[in-house]
């Protein structure tokens, strides 16, 4: 390993490369995860008893979730809501991505991409906050609906999961659009023409030609949006109510209100497993490798 590098960069630069790489991977990526798992397998003890006879590996922290019906329902709600968010963003983005990649002229596409990049760069908190204003009890949406006579009195949008889901779709939609756009763009337009020429209808062309080609992009987009949704704290914290808690909020509470870091670590690890599971599922479903993701 070192030989290949020093043949190109010489010994000093190579040592630098290795130091930086291993410092990052070991100190910031691997060891923290390992210690988090270790933490999740130990009981929560006062400092004096750590390392004492009671400090033994246990699955107790994981059993908590199995025995707590409320946490369980929040966990499953987090999953299906994230899937819903992922599905909605995919549905909303596909036509636009296709238009940008294959229909629009290069100038139009360039303009649209610039218009997409701007909100993409804007803080997630601010994007969520803007929906907080829109959806608030005395906000513009209620005012609009009232004035149009659709409703008689304002709706409390921010008291259920609906607000959270709407906010998430808005916050993460751009993580779907760019992978999709890049994937569809790399398809040779002549393939679409050829399919049309052979008498394939629009739906069949998409189903048989474009979507199979865009698989890696779809997988990447879905993985990113699901991971961001399931792991989001900001959106449910801003747009949710006490009655519509998210799994990340329970984790946060274990850490900073319950003071039980071991329990929190176990929940965090469960969340991580969920995300890994989703990634594996997507890779199987779309038959793509890790190399195709995050391109």
């Amino acid at each position: 390993m070192f030989k290949q590098l020093s043949e190109r960069f010489g010994p000093w630069v190579s040592i630098g490369i290795f130091l930086l790489m291993f410092l990052w991977l070991v100190m910031l990526v691997i060891l923290p995860q390992i210690l988090m798992i270790d933490y999740s397998l130990r009981p929560n003890l006062p400092p004096s008893q750590i390392g004492g006879p009671d400090d033994q590996y246990t699955l107790k922290n994981y059993a908590t979730l199995a025995n707590n019906a409320i946490h369980q329902s929040i966990f499953f709600k987090t999953i299906w809501s994230s899937v819903l968010v992922t599905f909605c963003t995919l549905l909303l983005c596909y036509p636009l991505a296709y238009y940008l990649a294959k229909v629009a002229t290069p100038r139009q596409a360039a303009l649209c991409v610039l218009l997409l990049i701007i909100p993409f760069w804007i803080n997630e908190i601010l994007r969520t906050f803007s929906w907080f204003i829109i959806l608030s009890y005395r906000g513009p949406l209620n005012a609009l609906l009232l004035s149009l006579g659709f409703i008689d009195r304002p709706i409390r949008f921010l008291s259920g999961d609906g607000g959270v889901i709407v906010g998430m779709v808005y916050a993460y939609i751009l993580f779907m659009i760019f992978p999709l756009y890049n994937a569809i763009e790399s398809l040779d337009s002549n393939q679409i023409k050829a399919a049309r020429n052979l008498g394939s209808g629009w739906i069949r062309t998409h189903y048989r030609i474009i979507i199979p080609h865009a698989k890696p992009g779809i997988a990447t987009g879905c993985i990113m949006v699901f991971m961001l949704s399931a792991g989001s704290y900001a959106v449910p914290a801003l747009l949710g109510s006490p009655g519509s808690r998210w799994f990340t909020q329970i984790i946060y509470n274990w850490f900073f209100e319950g003071g039980d870091w071991n329990q929190g670590a176990a929940y965090a690890f469960i969340l991580l497993l969920l995300c890994i599971g989703f990634i594996v599922l997507m890779m199987r479903l779309f038959k793509v490798g890790l190399g195709d993701i995050a391109r």
Binding site: L25, L28, V29, I30, L31, P32, Q33, L35, M36, Y39, I223, M227, L228, A230, G231, S232, Y233, T248, I251, Y252, F255, W261, G264, A265, A268, L271, L272, C275, I276, I279, L290, G291, I293, A294
Partner: peptide, 26 residues
């Protein structure tokens, strides 16, 4: 490939988990 996957993994890990594991480790 393993190292590449390892280097990508922080992008596929929810932000809260990166925060938590860093907090615990340090």
């Amino acid at each position: 490939n393993f190292l590449y996957g390892l280097m990508l993994s922080p992008l596929l890990t929810p932000g809260v988990i990166i925060g938590i594991s860093t907090l615990i480790f340090w």
